[in-house]
């Protein structure tokens, strides 16, 4: 295809992506270098019969004017990145110097908002992804062995948790595990503790969110693997059987290796989706114990009246860097594949 034709074909989609994806990243970066204006204070002296008193007042008009003139705020350089809510190098330095054991050090670091969110996001991603792959593979093998009549309906039912709106799906689960809901009440009954609430402790909240994550994404890995199973050549399975392999052995040595390329595809998709975990935290109102990177950005932006654009921008930039790091192996591999094909 000629360069010129290519240009005209790609123009609409490219301009949409440049305007609303690439430029916003630049805008996020610029924002992150500024902090909002402080309120303008006026000190006035009022003198009465008993001497003079100084009083400080907020000059609303001047503050408004300042915000109007420079909506970005004032330049702060990398200040926002280094403050307590983000990378907090100073606080970590102090913690490093003052704490004696690793445990103490990590508990101090764990209290810093950014690291707390990062810890949750990474734990969520690292637990949900492998669980979903293993369970998805197991269920795909199970469904594949089902009589034909049941295959369609099982896929239909499985698609529901995956395609349902994340906010809605997590609400549905939340109402059930609520201490008055059917699962929550049952758990209380089993442990004989009428005050047991899944929202009470960090560990339970995290577990609840991870269970939701598995419920929501399992169908994706299951269906991909199930589709992969349909492409396993029969003659290889036959050959394995002739060679005396048991059902289990041929699954392990023939079917699973055949699905390996799919595993890397599913892993990539799951990593991308799990890393942006956000809606369940809103639905479960789990923010007391679990915050993800996406959630803290959302929270900064919703700061009523005076959104913290700078802070949200800095967290966004750090999150984007995280995504790129997460994707590097994939990008490098694709780059190699491309070069191999080109030469």
């Amino acid at each position: 295809m000629k360069h010129r034709t290519f240009f005209w074909f790609i123009l609409p989609t490219l301009s949409a992506m440049i305007l609303f994806i690439a430029l916003p990243i630049v805008s996020v970066f610029v924002q992150s270098l500024f902090v909002g204006h402080e309120q303008v204070l006026v000190v006035s002296e009022s003198c009465g019969p008993f001497g003079c008193k100084e009083s400080t007042k907020i000059d609303l008009e001047a503050t408004e004017k300042l915000r109007e003139e420079a909506p970005l705020g004032k330049f702060n350089g990398a200040g926002t990145y280094l403050n307590r809510s983000h990378l907090a190098f100073a606080e970590i330095g102090v913690a490093w110097a003052e704490t004696e054991t690793w445990g103490e050090f990590w508990s101090v670091v764990g209290d810093l908002p950014f690291y707390r969110a990062l810890a949750f996001t990474l734990t969520y991603t690292a637990v949900v992804t492998p669980l979903v792959i293993l369970l998805g593979l197991a269920i795909a093998l199970g469904v594949n062995a089902l009589p034909k009549l049941f295959k369609g309906p099982s896929i239909f039912i499985s698609l529901l948790p995956f395609l349902v709106t994340p906010l809605v799906g997590s609400l549905i689960l939340f109402w059930m595990v609520d201490s008055d809901g059917v699962i929550g009440a049952t758990i209380q009954l089993i442990f004989d503790d009428p005050n047991l609430s899944l929202k009470a402790s960090a560990a339970l909240t995290w577990t609840m969110l991870i269970v939701y994550g598995v419920w929501h994404t399992l169908p994706f890995s299951f269906i991909t693997f199930y589709a992969g199973l349909q492409t396993v050549p029969d003659d290889i399975l036959e050959a394995a059987k002739v060679d005396g392999a048991s059902k289990w052995e041929s699954t392990l040595h023939v079917v699973v290796p055949h699905l390996m390329p799919l595993v890397s595809f599913v892993t990539l998709m799951l990593l991308m989706d799990n890393f942006r975990v956000f809606e369940p935290i809103v639905s479960f109102s789990a923010e007391a114990h679990a915050r993800s990177l996406s959630w803290i950005i959302y929270n900064d932006l919703r700061e009523s009246g005076n959104p913290l654009y700078g802070s949200a921008g800095a967290t966004s930039m750090l999150t984007i860097i995280g995504v790129v790091i997460l994707l590097t192996p994939v990008l490098i591999r694709t780059w190699r594949d491309f070069n191999r094909k080109a030469h």
Binding site: I10, L14, M17, F20, I21, L23, P24, I25, V26, S27, V28, Q31, P71, L72, M272, F275, R276, F278, L293, S294, I297, Y298, D300, L301, P307, Y309, A312, G313, S316, T319, I320, V323, V324, L326, L327, V330, L331, T334, W335
Partner: peptide, 23 residues
């Protein structure tokens, strides 16, 4: 272009939203 699209695809949407609001 496809590689850039892949990276864009992976970005949490809320990071972009923080870039939209002010403009």
């Amino acid at each position: 272009l496809l590689m850039a699209a892949l990276v864009f695809r992976a970005m949490p949407h809320i990071t972009l939203v923080s870039g939209y609001l002010l403009p």
